[in-house]
Every structure is written in C-alpha cells, then in structure tokens.
Simulated scan of single mutants.
Amino acid sequence: MTSKKVIELFYDVVSPYSWLGFEVMCRYRNVWNIDLKLRPAFLGGVMQGSGNKPPGLVPNKFAYMTHDLKRLAQYFDVPLQSPSDPFEAMFKKGSLSAMRFVAAVQERETGGDKQVEQVSRELWMRIWSEDKDITDPASLSEAAMKAGLPDSEIKELLKLSTSKEIKDKLKSTTQEALDHGSFGFPMMVCHVNGKHKMFFGSDRFELMAHCIGEKWLGPQPGKSAAKL
C-alpha cells in the first residue's frame, strides 16, 4: 500500500463553508488514502493579511450566501442554518476566543485530533445550527461538555486559551495559512510527492480527488458506495 498523502485542513468555526469542508474531509478520512491534519486558525487574520473582504461588506454576495447555504446544507447533509443575525455573529462578535479555545484543545490532546474534531463540530452547531453565542466562556464550556470533555479539563483549557502560548500558536497557524496563499477558509493543502497543492472552498473536492489520485464519491461517500 502506498504511503498516505497528508492533507491539512485550515478552518475557522465562524465560517459556514468551513463546516461543510470539515464534514466532507472527516467523512473521506477513511475512504481516501490520506492522513488528515486539522489546522484550526483565525479567519479574521487571514482576511486582513490577504486583503480580502468579508461577504457581509458586499450586499449582493451576502444575499447570495444566505440562499446558497440552504442549498448546500441539504446537499452535504449538514444541519446548517443561518443565525438570526449572521452579520453580527460572523463579523461583530467574531471567533477569536473560540479558535483560541480550539487551539488549546489541540495543544493538550495526544494521539490524534478526536477532541479537536468534536469540539469544533459542537461550536459550529452552536453558531450555525442553534443560533447561540460562541464567544462567552460559558458557551465554550457547554460546547466542550457536549463534546465529552470533563469539567476539570474544560476549566484548564479555558485558562490555557488566554495564555501567550496559545495566542502565539493560533497566530502561527494563521500565518501558515497565509504563507500557503490563503485568502479565506476552508483551505486544504495536499502534500503529494514532496509538493503541496492548495484548494480553497467547499466546492473543489472533485478536482482535489483528481489531483491526489483518488475518487470523488459525492458528499456522503458511504451512501454513494452502497449504490455501486
């Protein structure tokens, strides 16, 4: 069996498109011959560093996004629905504290990214399915509890998330995303034969599969395979 291809997934839980990309890549982790590396980063830093503009600042783009997400939620089978005030949730409150918390979870976790995956998913559920806050420490604690983390560990993680160590870790990962050419999330970096190839967005999976020598079986590979 050939060695696994490494795919890095850069994401931020404030981004609904990142949620779609995240779920698809988690589904394909055991379908494709890949080693998936979760890279939680700060979308605000990438937008600023790349000079990109949020869709909320372009009225037509923001209006389109609202309808687009409804279609995508059904297609990808992800319980995604816009919060009551998406502009406030995405751009006024932001995700800095949430992503520092995810970075702290990853810093403490050993033997894989299972806790990072579970906590990230719970945070997406809060903002993009349940219309809840993801900035308050109590909200972060609740998401972590739902992800299965014990209360004592959650308290330690909340404290760690405000440390210089974690702030620098998140800055470093965000800078890595920029160094790869990122201007938004989700961003996948595929390492193949000593080279890396960057793919942006939740609509490039078929092309990515072609480039890494795998097959795209749709957004739910298990169901697609069952029909073959």
Rank of each mutant, 00 (worst) to 15 (best):
R108L: 12
A147Q: 04
L96W: 07
T135H: 07
K114Y: 05
T173E: 12
V102P: 04
K164I: 13
K132E: 13
Y64C: 10
D168G: 01
T135K: 14
E107D: 14
V105Y: 01
D68W: 03
D168F: 03
Y75T: 07
D151E: 11
S161I: 00
L178V: 01
Q115E: 04
R121A: 03
T173F: 05
L69Q: 05
T162S: 14
S139W: 13
A147P: 01
R108Q: 09
A138F: 10
K167C: 08
R108I: 14
S152H: 15
E176W: 11
V105K: 02
I166F: 15
P86D: 09
L157W: 09
V102L: 15
Y75F: 03
K93M: 05
A144N: 01
P137Y: 14
L140N: 00
S129M: 07
D151P: 06
G148W: 13
M65V: 02
Y75V: 09
S82G: 06
G111R: 11
R100I: 04
W128E: 03
Q74T: 12
P86N: 10
E109Y: 07
K93H: 14
K114Q: 14
D151W: 14
W128N: 02
S120D: 13
L80P: 00
K93L: 12
S120F: 02
S97R: 08
L96T: 07
E122K: 11
R100A: 04
K93E: 11
P150Q: 07
L123F: 00
M90F: 13
T162Y: 08
K167M: 13
R121T: 05
S84T: 11
K93C: 09
S97T: 15
D136R: 06
I154T: 01
S129K: 11
D77V: 02
P86G: 02
S161D: 03
A138Y: 07
A177M: 09
K169M: 12
Q115P: 15
K70F: 05
W128R: 01
Y64G: 13
H67D: 11
S161N: 03
Q175V: 07
M145I: 08
E88Q: 08
L157T: 02
A143E: 10
T173G: 03
F62R: 13
A138I: 10
D77R: 05
Q175E: 04
D113R: 04
D113P: 15
S141M: 02
K92N: 12
P86M: 05
E165S: 14
A177G: 04
F62W: 12
L80C: 04
M125T: 01
S129F: 10
F76E: 08
G148E: 09
A98N: 15
L178G: 02
A104N: 03
S95H: 12
K146C: 05
K171F: 13
K146G: 11
V102E: 06
F87C: 03
W128I: 00
I166N: 02
E122L: 06
A138M: 04
E130N: 15
D77Y: 09
S163L: 11
Q106R: 06
A104P: 08
E122R: 03
A177W: 00
M125H: 11
F91N: 10
M99K: 03
A104C: 04
A177R: 01
T66R: 13
L80N: 00
L157Y: 07
L170P: 00
P86H: 05
V105T: 01
K70S: 07
D85P: 09
E142D: 10
E142H: 04
